[in-house]
Amino acid sequence: MSETVSAAEPMLEVSELTVDFPTDDGLLHAVNHVTFGIARGETVGIVGESGSGKSVMSMAIMGLLPKSARVTGSVKFRGQELLGASERDFERIRGSEIAMVFQDALASLNPVHTVGAQVAEAVAIHQELKGSELRNAAIELLDVVGIANPSARFEQYPHEFSGGMRQRAMIAMAIANDPAVLIADEPTTALDVTIQAQVLEVLERIQERTSTSIMLITHDLGVVAGVADSVMVMYAGSQVERGSVEDIFYESRHPYTKGLLASLPRMDRRMNKSDRLHQIEGQPPSLVFLPTGCAFHPRCAFAETPGACDGEVPALRVVGDGHYSACHFADRIGSEEGAMS
């Protein structure tokens, strides 16, 4: 099936995806009109702070949102519409075609079943394997993700694993059926830097092996710079900028992205003790009471208020080849390099 899909054709196509949750105060706009695609073998980094809608978006793609969520737009996997698909269809796709790796591996693994049983379950749901064949398949998966002594580890419970090993076990479950798309939701957030690198390396190795498309959700720009092909930056449920890694890191056309980049500690710039890292002033907005116009304008150094910034929601527009920005002044942002610091 996958052979018929050419590399340029998106494996996963999300367009105008919007997710609202009814709350006592009104609708909470978790995701607003997000559009993007992931090609076969591509890694898309999705960046944004907590509450920017990254995780909700991935849950919407997997059909895992609670019933109260109002989801509109379109999510197409290999051209097949997923939104509104039946639970039965979703069960067939989940874990076999689109798989997911979650952030907190300790909480995400069932404490009362052995790691081996949980990996084997992921295999058994979608493949006709039983008994020792199933066991061997699970042990091989543990081996693939770099768990030493996999047949002994098979019998152990999640609490007997270290943090990095648990995340590897999560990845083993996710890749059990060679999924076409792997959604990794902050897979390295709770890990040491060295373990982070190892886990990312496992993801890259798997991608090389099976040309899996990876949607990497993170708030760590360093991780994105290391592994992603393209990047989407989200703020308050909307995408504010999208482009290649080079576009985003070197020629950002959105003040929020620029703010994020400026707040990174830099190895190549000497800092004095009195120097402070850049910070984006203010707080992320309430998703129930979004600011008028551009959601970022109250925190934006470039905002012209009253004017376009608080009057009109900026549309995502082309600012370069495959580079999009949702800023009214995207053209000006690129040239004002010094203004950030």
């Binding site: 639970e87 796709i93 069932n110 009362v112 479950m173 059990a176």
Partner: peptide, 28 residues
Amino acid sequence: ADYVRTARAKGVPRRDVVVHHALRNALV
């Protein structure tokens, strides 16, 4: 719980999610 979400993300049918993953833990 997160592990119930994981089970669903694996494509475990709802019945098995409830019995094998949720109830097994809720009985403790």
